[in-house]
Write a protein that binds this DNA or RNA. Structure first.
Lengths: 115, 115
DNA sequence: GACGAATATTCGTTCATGCGAATATATTGC
DNA sequence: GCAATATATTCGCATGAACGAATATTCGTC
């Protein structure tokens, strides 16, 4: 994944928030949508953009789709994701997103599935 | 300088090469143009883009304009520029650009000005 | 003043991007 | 089979970006 490709993926606020959230672990579309508070179609469109460029991968779990960052990113991507993660610590918007994620519950289980 | 703004500046190949070169020190437009081997107007347009967004600053020296990265970047920008510099070490295109820069002479002095 | 060199800007064209609206598709439970 | 839920995709629109061509501006020298 080239440097330009990495920056293309991150130069939009919605995609940046998605990738920031995914640095904390895989997430499903409905959780991403709940945290970002944007229309579902927009989340899907940006996920498709990221998927097309190899920034995220996905796997199905029933009707849910779980998105995650690459397990084996190249050196450049790993380096930039680490850098982004460092910077996100002081990013107010990201901290707010994290609080929302914690409030929702980030185990990506269907509501009511717990026993 | 926001993260998105940083990525917007770097998500184009010409601007990326410009910033990569500037991580090694200030440069004038004619040196940048000689290394990048693109039309002068294009270099100027991308420099204007970067300048408008605070990614570079410039000062005149006679008819020459010397461009440089911010002396006091914010934490995010500093972090990303360091990351970019790390990644550039293994970037073939950047190494080629550096060789050209060395061949040209990177002191930004007018030709024949040496004594 | 004119001229040359260096550089910036404007304009028009083309294309990518981001969006919303609408709709299509996949899966599960009944 | 249908309904509900989750998600993806398509279409059209508006805007910004990237570019080349042409030109304007600035500075130093004469």
């Amino acid at each position: 994944m080239s440097l330009v490709r990495i920056y293309e993926c991150l130069c939009d606020e919605t995609r940046l928030r998605i990738v920031q959230l995914l640095t904390r672990g895989p997430l499903c579309v409905c959780h991403l949508q709940a945290v970002l508070e944007v229309p579902q179609a927009r989340v899907s469109q940006h996920l498709a953009y990221l998927r097309d460029r190899g920034m995220v991968g996905c796997r199905r779990r029933g009707t849910w789709m779980i998105y995650s960052l690459p397990e084996k990113p190249g050196a450049e991507l790993a380096s930039h994701l680490a850098c982004l993660q460092d910077c996100s610590v002081s990013d107010k918007r990201f901290r707010a997103d994290l609080r929302k994620l914690k409030a929702i519950g980030s185990d990506c289980a269907p509501a009511g599935a717990t026993t």
